[in-house]
Design a protein around this nucleic acid. Structure first.
Lengths: 194, 194
DNA sequence: ATAATTTTGGAGCAATTGATCCAATAGTAT
DNA sequence: ATACTATTGGATCAATTGCTCCAAAATTAT
């Protein structure tokens, strides 16, 4: 019926995500996206709308993969402390050996001064809530299995753990070295009051 | 001997800082800076070099004022817990009633994807160290005055407190409401293991 | 006054930006 | 084959970017 697409939408979003991840919203130009995805100018804008909409699609994808994996970990049946340790360690992990971008794309989005789009803000708020709930579920599970005192406030614990995770992510996005991050993770685990 | 300057360098840097603070590096244009400072194009570049150098001057000023104040608080003679509370509460405070920028300009700088300047990175690293040391001094004082157990590791405590402060700043820079921040600060204080 | 000197204003530049436009292309249905 | 249609490539657009250039202006020393 018509000329078929020459690109794989999923692969294109992955490539675009990688660029936004490294460079942030404002410093990623449409030419950067064209170069990274291999699409032509016409196709890119014809298929994904404008730059903001493409960024939103990237964040949705990040939510559906990385955030979903983090959520899975948090609501899994592992021992509570072990989960928390894995979450903390995950903040410092490189995504892959070849790609050099690090940190959390959701975190980057939520502190990116160049983003002024309502839909993106709504999504970052939703991800924040999703993670808080996952932490809360983890705390509830721990309480029920007596890994936490029965009188613990799950919501409060969840928010606290979320904030520490955010602090770690900020240090990763900043200049902190792998050794420094490892050291802080060790301290954070040691200082957990539960 | 020559035409006198029509601007006050300190006031100009304050205005520029305010713009960078609100909009981040990449989203602040030279025209934004000209409009905010009231300088002419020629004067701005003639006096402050390029945009990057002006940003550096703003961060230096921030270091000399806000960071210095935070350091003073940390090395003051106040009770340890009271200091920590004030530091945490300070992360959520608006700079003034009229200005609407919030959060910590140093934090913003250290997570700004648009900054690729070596001098700026060096300065953010120096500020990081300065604050860590101030936290460490606070911990040392607390140890000596038996507000902390004598066997406490001051460096470790300092890094941990620094990370929590960073986490709070990230939440401020993100979407978090004042109520949410207040609540988290309360939890953070409650959960301090010392 | 005149000369010397620095600052000022703003016109203007080359490069880059996000996005549009549209003929050429490559398929499917008939 | 022919018609139909969605995709493609890339030329092109107006707007914006960081920054330069330089004549005009404003001061002090002589």
């Amino acid at each position: 019926m018509a000329r078929p697409r020459q690109y794989d939408e999923d692969a294109v979003i992955d490539k675009a995500l990688s660029v936004f991840w490294k460079k942030g919203f404002s410093d990623t130009s449409s030419r950067d996206l064209i170069a990274a995805t291999g699409m032509s100018n016409g196709s890119l804008f014809n298929s994904f709308g404008d730059k903001t909409t493409l960024y939103l699609a990237c964040l949705q994808k990040y939510n559906a993969t990385y955030i979903a994996a983090l959520e899975s970990l948090l609501i899994s049946e592992l021992p509570f402390k072990e989960k928390i340790q894995k979450v903390f360690e995950g903040t410092a992990k490189k995504v892959s050996a070849t790609d050099d971008y690090e940190g959390c794309f959701f975190f980057n989005s939520s502190v990116d001064s160049g983003i002024h789009d309502a839909a993106i803000s709504t999504l970052t708020a939703a991800i924040q809530l999703r993670l808080e709930k996952a932490f809360c579920t983890a705390a509830d599970q721990a309480r029920e299995s007596k890994q936490l005192p029965i009188e613990s406030d799950s919501v409060q614990i969840a928010q606290y753990l979320m904030m520490i995770t955010t602090g770690l992510r900020a240090m990763v996005k900043g200049n902190a070295s792998v050794a420094e991050i490892d050291h802080i993770i060790h301290s954070a685990l040691k200082f957990l009051p539960f």
